[in-house]
């Protein structure tokens, strides 16, 4: 009985003293934080992707609360919706931004861009890039080792084992820019999602001369400038044998993909064109 009593008292005393110490320490070292940081953080997607340029969602929330305006602060994952909520909490105007999505500017799958050697190093695009131009004749194209897949925090980019090219799931893609930063070949670009997700872009980043590109890949941009000539909106520029379509000027008139001799220009989510006669025949 005595033993039990002593134990209970001792434990109670130890517990009580510890509680007191904890209480005073908590008082002394208490950090006053703006309560709004927690509220803002609640709204944010909690992906901690770093797409906003701050270390995690907490960092972004702090930055939002501290800043005088929300200009330059944007959560690419949550988009305008989340930003306007943040704006309403803080009583500030949130900038309206267009939703962005990642596009992969290489279409050189195994058939169209034949393999010329076999890479036998670690499955890592950065390591392969520092070694050489890649296992095809095109030193600009996708290496297919999936650095972009690894960094994607939203499961939105997947390597297609058949084509050895990454594919973006545009419903999941939040435009956080992580894959763009990870790609050592700068193949991935963030583009405006576009009306009804329709986008037209050049699916190639090869700066090689036309003949060289053609030699290496069937769907490379050879810099022939046919698209440049057909474009009525000055949206297309050609530098270093490579065409680029400015998403801000492009009106999605769909003339350029038609004239491209190598089918290097990609139209996404556009309704099917009227089939030409020859196509109909070949499809039968």
């Amino acid at each position: 009985m005595n033993v039990i009593l002593i134990s209970v008292i001792l434990l109670a005393v130890v517990g009580g003293v510890s509680a007191l110490i904890l209480y005073f320490v908590a008082q002394k070292f208490h950090v006053l934080e703006d309560a709004r940081i927690d509220v803002v953080q609640e709204i944010l997607p909690a992906a901690n992707c770093g797409g906003c340029g701050y270390p995690g969602c907490r960092g972004f929330a702090e930055a939002c609360v501290k800043a005088d305006t929300l200009e330059g602060l944007y959560c690419p994952v949550g988009g305008s919706e989340v930003m306007s909520k943040v704006g309403s909490i803080l009583g500030r105007e949130a900038a309206q931004t267009v939703p962005m999505v990642a596009v992969v500017r290489c279409q050189g799958d195994c058939d169209k861009r034949p393999q010329t050697n076999e890479y036998d190093g670690p499955t890592n695009c950065s390591i392969a890039t520092s070694l050489y131009g890649g296992d095809t004749d095109c030193s600009y194209g996708c290496l297919g080792h999936g650095d972009c897949v690894v960094v994607c925090g939203f499961d939105a980019i997947k390597m297609n084992p058949e084509t050895r090219l990454p594919e973006v799931d545009e419903d999941k893609c939040t435009g956080c820019n992580a894959c763009v930063k990870a790609c050592p070949k700068v193949i991935i670009e963030l583009r405006k999602k576009g009306p009804r997700s329709r986008r037209i872009y050049v699916g190639c980043v090869s700066k090689d001369k036309g003949a060289q590109t053609k030699n290496a890949c069937a769907v490379g941009c050879i810099g022939c400038s046919k698209c440049f000539k057909v474009c009525e909106f000055d949206a297309i520029t050609i530098t270093n044998n490579l065409a680029y379509i400015d998403p801000n000027k492009c009106k999605l008139c769909r003339k350029c993909p038609e004239v491209c001799p190598t089918n290097a220009i990609v139209e996404l989510n556009c309704p099917p064109r009227k089939k030409k006669e020859e196509d109909v025949i070949s499809n039968d």
Partner: peptide, 13 residues
């Protein structure tokens, strides 16, 4: 293990 490959990558970064 491809140790030096990743170390080289580390050096670059």
């Amino acid at each position: 293990r491809p140790l030096v490959d990743f170390i080289r990558l580390g050096k670059t970064k």
